[in-house]
Design a protein around this nucleic acid. Structure first.
Lengths: 205, 205
DNA sequence: CACAAAAGTGACGAAACGTCAATTTGCGAC
DNA sequence: GTCGCAAATTGACGTTTCGTCACTTTTGTG
């Protein structure tokens, strides 16, 4: 302990500007996608939003597409611990489902605060579900569901299909919720939780 | 009836080549997207797949993006009557749900027969749900659900959310099914139908 | 057949792409 | 501190794609 408890990350300036530049590109990209829409945006538009030169962009990303994937991946990375906490703090399976959906709906509301073009145009047309962090989120969901099944809180169902169903429901109902105002996060979460646990009978108010 | 019952469509050569050219572009685009992936494909790649000149492309579409939307729209247009038949022939609400899912899963299996790049890369990243035919499919689903509710076959739930949930489930579970082989259409349809009608309890085998 | 309107053509300027030789910056050795 | 090397940045450059438009060809009509 001769070194004080100072910085656990003895980061040099090299690495520091590297993360800073990467971050600057991502932030600029997010703004550009929101303002011009994903399709219309160009790599040049993105770097214009930073103080970097055009060539530098290619030190960090191969293409606009890769930038978007990185943004999506970052979102998933930020969401994962939230999801994990929902699991660890849940008092029951129903409680887990409900708080996980609340967390997700809350997350996407936050994530779309930026003004600009309609949300659909901000992104490429089909969302890749196969980036590393996206896969991790899927695994997290699936694991929770398998645990619940093993623990007797849920019947023996196909955990893969069930995880996909949960994610599909979250995405589509989440989008529908974003289209309404005000955003009724709790109502949406109640709806989907009831639907999953008891089927249609459970989805009514 | 002095005119013979001849051709109900007095189509001149003008209109005929117009539809033919449009179709040629769509077919070439489908092949190009499958081979190169949507992002990598260029407008030039697409017209190279036809015997048209580059300028002609822009008589039909404004951009690669618009071509994709037209392809998606065509898919929805082809699927809609299938969905309608499922509704009209259904003997019960459960029967409707099941046959609608079977029809959708069958449809996407057919629609991805082409070899080439992985399916995720064939399309832009996020699927627009706001093209005319896509909206019509959504309305069709929602209408069926509202009818079922009014007819007492389903409880009083938020039909918008329910329609979105059904579509989200269909998309995600459908993708999961495509990843498996052989494609177990009936198993998947049983799963989602049970899930919707009885919740988790109904989704087990 | 003649003529007008519609559609097709491909060359062209503009714009974006991705690369790379030259330059600047960071870091350890002395 | 400063020297030297490696890593990172820069922006100009050749290349590719874009979208347009003046011109040609095709189609329908009188």
């Amino acid at each position: 302990m001769s070194e004080t408890a100072a910085n656990v990350e003895p980061i040099g300036k090299r690495e520091k500007t590297k993360v800073a530049n990467r971050q600057a590109i991502l932030i600029a990209a997010r703004a550009v996608f929101a303002e011009l829409g994903y399709e219309a945006a160009t790599v040049r538009d993105i770097i214009r939003g930073t103080d970097l030169a055009s060539g530098t962009f290619y030190n960090y990303f191969k293409s606009k597409e890769e930038v978007f994937d990185a943004l999506a991946d970052d979102g998933a990375r930020r969401f994962r611990p939230i999801l994990r906490m929902a699991r660890e703090n849940a008092k029951s399976f129903e409680d887990y489902l409900h708080s996980a959906f609340v967390a997700y709906f809350h997350f996407i509301v936050q994530d779309n605060q930026l003004e600009g073009r309609p949300i659909e145009e901000r992104r490429p047309h089909i969302l890749r579900m196969d980036t590393p962090e996206m896969t991790a989120v899927y695994q997290e969901v699936r694991q929770s569901l398998e645990d619940a099944i093993a623990h007797g809180d849920a019947p023996h169902v196909d955990a893969d299909y069930l995880a996909c169903a949960c994610i599909g429901i979250a995405q589509e109902v989440g989008s529908a919720m974003l289209r309404r105002s005000p955003h009724d996060i709790d109502a949406a979460a109640d709806f989907v939780t009831g639907l999953l646990l008891k089927g249609l009978a459970g989805a009514s108010r």
